[in-house]
């Protein structure tokens, strides 16, 4: 199977130091690849590099991100913009701030349909209603009239999911889509993303720090630390028998709800020290 997104030797740095170190990552068509790591591991940086929305101060120093035969890193802005939304889309991290507070849901949802897919206002409206229906929002016509602050966090994330799928992109990058939601809503949203992905046959790059989420929705996973890929493989295998000591420690650190009396286990200092040495080498 040929990869849809092929990232090779990707390195990036900021003024403070390296952010990504020679990352290699390929995502196959229709699969869900998890990017796992703690804060600062570089998982969001990879996602943003693919979308060309790296914050100022972070520069890619080497590497390729190949998508549909084109290197996204050397693609002119104009060409890249044509692909965004239509070929690659984003489900953002924070549903509370990722919708424009001053505009109605309907206007925000139809923007992409009208400006990118060339629909007229009425068709776009009908399509937006259908999209909200797809993400299981009840009474979509009413919701289209609402402002973001009138919706709950879960509703907003559903709207953002609808928006990401609205132009039927081949790849969707989900940047910690459930982190800002509470646990009960998380589950529904995860199931929704999974169903939508299957229906649309979308390839999903799923950024998260939650191993439970990985186990639920992802096919393969990449474990990152300090911008370096530590381990990569099928989710079931890695969760079953992690090879890298950091991955082992990460799995052990996951709280066990069935054994609440057990104290939490942080990643041991020895593992971290070994990692630091590995990174500086």
């Amino acid at each position: 199977m040929s990869p849809v997104i092929d990232i090779k030797h990707l390195s990036a740095r900021s003024a403070a130091g390296p952010i990504l170190r020679d990352v290699a990552l390929s995502v196959n068509a229709g699969e869900t690849m998890a990017l796992v790591g703690e804060s600062g591991a570089g998982k969001s940086t990879i996602a943003k590099a693919v979308l060309g929305i790296l914050p100022q101060g972070i520069t890619v120093t080497s590497g390729d991100i190949v998508f549909e035969g084109k290197n996204l890193l050397t693609l002119p802005q104009r060409e890249l913009r044509k692909m965004l939304g239509v070929r690659i889309a984003l489900i953002p991290q924070d549903p509370l701030t990722s919708l424009n507070p001053a505009r109605r849901i309907g206007d925000q949802l139809t923007d992409g349909l009208r400006l990118r897919a060339g629909m007229d206002g009425k068709t776009a409206r009908t399509q937006a209603t259908r999209l909200l229906n797809d993400v299981q929002i009840r009474d979509p016509e009413r919701v289209l009239q609402r402002y973001p602050h009138e919706l709950s966090g879960g509703m907003r994330q559903r709207v953002l999911i609808a928006q990401a799928f609205s132009l039927n992109p081949q790849v969707i990058i989900a940047d910690e889509p459930t982190t800002a939601l509470d646990v009960t809503v998380q589950k529904q949203v995860l199931r929704l993303i999974r169903d939508m992905q299957r229906n649309h046959k979308t390839t999903l790059l799923f950024v998260t720090h939650d191993l439970g989420v990985v186990a639920q929705v992802c096919d393969r996973m990449t474990v990152l630390y300090g911008g370096k890929v530590l381990e990569q493989g099928v989710v079931a295998e890695i969760l079953q028998s992690p090879q890298h000591p950091y991955t082992q420690a990460l799995l052990a650190a996951n709280p066990r709800y069935d054994r609440p009396s057990q104290s939490l286990k942080p990643v041991p200092e020895t593992v971290l020290a070994a990692l630091k040495q590995e990174l500086s080498a």
């Binding site: 979308l51 692909m83 939304g85 990722s98 923007d111 992409g112």
Partner: peptide, 20 residues
């Protein structure tokens, strides 16, 4: 972030400036 989200949706800078 809504500006970033609009960029990721492929909106042009003019569109983002005046509509968002």
């Amino acid at each position: 972030e809504y500006t970033e989200a609009a960029t990721a949706l492929g909106m042009s800078r003019g569109t983002i400036l005046f509509r968002e």
